[in-house]
Computed example of a mutant assay.
Amino acid sequence: MASTQQRFMRRGITKVLFLKTIAAATNVPTRAELSPGSDLTKSAVDLSRQVSDVEGWSLENSPIETPDLGSRFSTSIPGEDKAASSSLTFYEDLAAETVETLLSKDVVGYVVILRKGDIPQSKSMDIFPVRVGSRAPSYSTGTEPAKFKVSFAITDVPTLDAAIPAAAAG
């Protein structure tokens, strides 16, 4: 018996957060660490409403060829894992530089992606330890909003498919 798959569009569901720090060695944030606050240096910043485009944020494997004399077919084995080139493109704000200040060159932190939204216990949270490599405006003479692109270096093994912490009891 086939179950019904509930498909969805990422826009309006997926959340992209930036955290300066995560206390746990596992790089999985607590509910308190995921909660936005007024101090951008200590709390999560929800960037979802400013993001216009997402690139990368995945792991890739570079297979190693293992040919042998016994066959004309060239086999392979899994090789090293590496992170894809990753970036976020943001809308520019005419009145403030909040995101530009938060994500200036060489800033370190964590990009946290809640793929299915903030659903406690869902194993759909990916955490990427990052360092900002560059931030550059996108210039255009066309009729489109002003944007800038932030490129990130993934500095350590990302934590994929982590469970989203339960909401605080209240």
Rank of each mutant, 00 (worst) to 15 (best):
G70D: 09
P67K: 05
D93T: 02
V16R: 05
K82W: 09
P120C: 00
V99C: 03
K20A: 08
D39W: 06
K42Q: 11
I64C: 04
S48A: 05
T89I: 06
G70L: 07
R49H: 12
A95K: 09
P78L: 10
V99D: 00
S62C: 08
I77Y: 04
N27G: 02
A95D: 07
F8E: 03
L34Y: 04
R49P: 10
I77C: 04
S43P: 08
S62K: 14
G37N: 02
G70Q: 05
L88V: 07
P29R: 04
I13R: 09
L59W: 08
Q6M: 14
V45G: 00
R49L: 15
A136K: 15
E100I: 10
S38C: 13
L19K: 03
V16A: 06
F8L: 04
P67W: 07
D68S: 10
T41N: 11
S35H: 07
Q121L: 12
A32T: 12
L103T: 01
V107A: 12
L103Y: 01
I64N: 05
M9D: 15
I77F: 03
R7D: 15
A136D: 14
K123E: 13
G12K: 03
R131C: 12
R135H: 15
S58I: 10
P120R: 01
S43H: 11
R135D: 12
T41Q: 11
L69S: 15
P67S: 07
Y91D: 06
W57D: 00
I13G: 04
D93Y: 03
L47V: 05
G133L: 10
D118V: 10
S48G: 06
I127R: 00
K116M: 11
G56M: 01
S38F: 13
K42S: 12
L59N: 09
E33D: 05
V54I: 13
G109I: 05
T66C: 07
Y110M: 00
I13L: 10
D118R: 08
P78R: 06
S35C: 13
Y91W: 10
E97P: 09
V45I: 07
E92L: 11
Q121H: 15
S104Y: 08
Y110R: 00
I113A: 00
D53L: 09
S86G: 04
V28S: 02
